[in-house]
């Protein structure tokens, strides 16, 4: 579709965009810090202790999470599109988002009246997310076989069940409602280094493994008979790729909540640019995921709102998930219209 050279150029462009957005992200906030001072602070060469604290302690975790989560969701979506043979597949279709949110709601409802659960919540979401993914995998495998279409249908059904369970718990315990909203939409507001440490292991394992799965992904993209004739054991390969998509998405959901659209947009954009070869689509989807999430979070940060609470003097940043849904969805429609030849 595109020649190797223009692919390399576009990849480089996306990588540069990610770096620029990363630095802008670190500069933006209540106090604007220009890029040169951000870079000095990042390199630990800054003479201004305020810059050092703001950049390295307060803003760096959120920016790193933007990079990681975007990358994980983009790659997870690209892997799922291969396993499910469907360009509408996205990380939420693994059951991780609804699983994570149900776990969070149950946790918040169960600890009502007790002191705030604090740092425990992301772990609970992580466990729920992984459980959701495993549930979808087991529910869809019949006699040890994973069929792409059955996997999609099962995921939709499991998501519907988990979603309605969440709704029931929330109706019974309205205290959970407020704190769960940002998880439902997905947000990076107020993330700290602890959140980075929580997501990092999943990213460190999932991203390289996901990229190395490119060749298996390419064979899986053929019809089943051709894939088997080339000597790829299809069922184990499908389970492995689905597992990687679950791990990546669960790691992302546990720190950011259910951010939608990145995992759908990034792989589709990557395919529109790079064609079908997974050796290009997977890394490009990860990179585009970073760029999209950082850009959206930059917008989310700058468009703070004053909550409609009379006594509140604070302004609250928009959740990045909301920005992505509002600005990202139209972009996706444009992209899809263009990619139809």
């Amino acid at each position: 579709m595109t020649s190797a050279r223009s692919f390399a150029a576009l990849t480089l462009l996306a990588a540069i965009a990610a770096v620029v957005l990363f630095i802008l992200h670190l500069g933006l906030g209540t106090v604007w810090i220009p890029p040169d001072r951000v870079i000095l602070a990042l390199l630990d060469r800054s003479t201004d202790p305020t810059d050092l604290t703001i950049v390295r302690e307060l803003r760096l975790p959120r920016a790193i999470l933007g990079l990681l989560v975007g990358c994980m969701l983009g790659l997870s979506g690209a892997l799922l599109q291969v396993v499910m043979r469907n360009r509408l597949a996205e990380p939420g279709l693994t059951g991780v988002s609804t699983g994570g949110i149900l776990a969070a709601v149950l946790f918040l409802a169960g600890t009502w009246g007790l002191p705030p659960p604090g740092r425990l919540l992301p772990f609970v979401v992580l466990l729920g997310a992984l459980a959701g993914g495993i549930l979808v995998l087991f529910a869809s495998s019949a006699r040890g076989r994973i069929d792409p279409l059955r996997l999609i249908l099962t995921a939709v059904i499991v998501n519907a069940i988990l979603g309605s369970l969440t709704a029931i718990v929330m109706l019974r315990s309205q205290q959970a409602l407020g704190s769960i909203l940002s998880w439902l939409i997905g947000s990076l507001n107020g993330r700290v280094w602890d959140d980075v440490w929580l997501a990092l292991p999943w990213a460190a394992v999932g991203i390289p493994a996901g990229l190395l799965a490119a060749r298996a992904a390419n064979v899986l993209q053929l019809d089943d008979e051709s894939g088997r004739a080339l000597g790829l054991p299809l069922q184990p390969a499908r389970v492995a790729l689905f597992g990687l998509a679950v791990v990546l998405a669960a790691g992302a959901v546990s720190v950011s909540g259910a951010i939608a659209f990145v995992g759908l947009m990034a792989p589709n954009a990557a395919r529109a640019i790079a064609g079908a070869d997974a050796r290009r689509v997977l890394p490009l989807a990860a990179l585009i995921g970073c760029v999209l999430l950082l850009a959206a979070d930059l917008v989310a940060q700058s468009l703070s709102i004053k909550p409609p609470i009379p006594s509140s003097a604070y302004r609250v940043g928009l959740p990045v998930g909301a920005v992505l849904a509002v600005f990202g969805a139209p972009l996706l429609i444009i992209l899809l219209r263009r990619s139809i030849r």
């Binding site: 579709m1 993209q221 053929l222 019809d223 008979e225 051709s226 004739a229 395919r271 064609g275 079908a276």
Partner: peptide, 14 residues
């Protein structure tokens, strides 16, 4: 080598 009856490849594969 086997060439199945109706092989299929993803759109855009060169």
């Amino acid at each position: 080598s086997v060439l199945p009856q109706s092989p299929s490849s993803p759109p855009g594969l060169t």
